[in-house]
Design a protein around this nucleic acid. Structure first.
Lengths: 212, 212
DNA sequence: GCGATTATTGGCACTCACTGCCACTAAAGA
DNA sequence: TCTTTAGTGGCAGTGAGTGCCAATAATCGC
């Protein structure tokens, strides 16, 4: 039997493509973050965000299940950039060395504006508990992807406890380092700082082994 | 100058003690969790919880800033139990050995009912995203306590990156292991399972160093 | 081009989480 | 008992988020 769904004769308006939808979410996300940063999350209403983004409030709520989810598209860019690098981790290399070589934080093909926006969001999560919760949830979802990569690499099942622990640990390292770099780049991001970020991750990974 | 506030001549009704307040929160927490488990978080209203706990809705909202926070008191019991064990970590011992010796999970002086309730909450967080977010937030708060302990132990400042990374990593290990044991104890908790929990944490800590 | 068909949007009303305000009661000391 | 301070409950209000339906947009067969 074919694992693809039986090709139904399509009729009517086709559903919007997934990338299209992601793009739209990202666009709204940018407006939301600007508002959050300017006046705080609590003081920013869904209506405001919708208006800023140029959609009706109703459709805004269809794109985001709750206000805090507005930070997801931007944060996802960052997290999935790291996941991509991990995926490309060649078998013969140490993780640390691979990161040194391949990790151009935070996002490879991203505009400078987006890098700045992402760091802004991370900074926001450090003072806005609601956003922090969303951030942590997102990170945990990403752990599954990390686990996938690690599982493939080691041959262990994806839900083996060693795999999940390592995934969680890597994620934790990345979180701490990211918080740090976001704080450090309070105003003005330089390439140097992002390089520092990479070195910090590498060093921290090494530090993990030193849990006496 | 004295670092204690100048002793004001107390008048009127004294504020309720902190333990008293915690007890009350815990009590409400138990009712809330029972309801959450029975009918889901979304279907449980603040009014219901308040009624079940025997307080007015208004005071309920004074005890908890939002519904999901109802899980905090129970979860805090678990997390702080681990922190206590860490505090007692003697300098000459390996962490793994110390845990094997001193960690009687999940809570030392707790009733069996509370252990069961805590595991129930953890299980709930695995299917209720809102509760999961609260759980993750709580865990991150606990990282500060872990960092404190590690800092004191190593002489490094509490906000040194090595310290925060190690704290986050330990926390991550604990999280994964806790999720596992909560799943395993779907029905019926035995001492064996809790011992298994301890061993799993110990093994996972060892696994951390194997990040090739 | 014209309908028929399906997807998305926007508007409206509604529920409910949560807050501010105020009157009321409880627990102290004078 | 009177005064003072803290906690409680009720009531009204805001705003997040949802269900429902009418309107519009995009596609196909003709």
């Amino acid at each position: 039997m074919t694992d693809v769904v039986t090709e139904k004769p399509r009729r009517g308006r086709p559903p919007v493509s997934d990338e299209q939808r992601q793009r739209q979410r990202l666009e709204i996300s940018r407006h939301a973050v600007r508002l959050f940063a300017g006046q705080g999350v609590a003081a920013t209403s869904g209506e405001q965000i919708a208006q800023a983004a140029g959609v009706s409030e109703r459709t805004f709520w269809r794109y985001f299940p709750h206000k805090e989810a507005c930070v997801e598209p931007l944060l996802t860019k960052m997290v999935s950039a790291f996941c991509e690098v991990l995926r490309a981790w060649p078998a013969e290399l140490e993780l640390i060395d691979h990161l040194r070589e391949a990790y151009r934080p935070l996002l490879d093909g991203a505009s400078d504006e987006d890098i700045e926006a992402v760091l802004e969001v991370v900074r926001l999560t450090q003072h806005e508990p609601a956003l922090r919760a969303a951030y942590l949830t997102l990170r945990e979802r990403a752990e599954h992807t990390l686990a996938e990569v690690l599982a493939e690499r080691t041959g262990l099942p994806q839900d083996a406890i060693e795999i999940r622990v390592q995934a969680a640990a890597i994620s934790a390292v990345l979180k701490v380092a990211t918080d740090d770099v976001a704080r450090a780049t309070g105003k003005g991001v330089t390439r140097d700082m992002l390089d520092l970020h990479r070195e910090q991750i590498a060093n921290s990974l090494r530090g993990l082994s030193q849990l006496r």
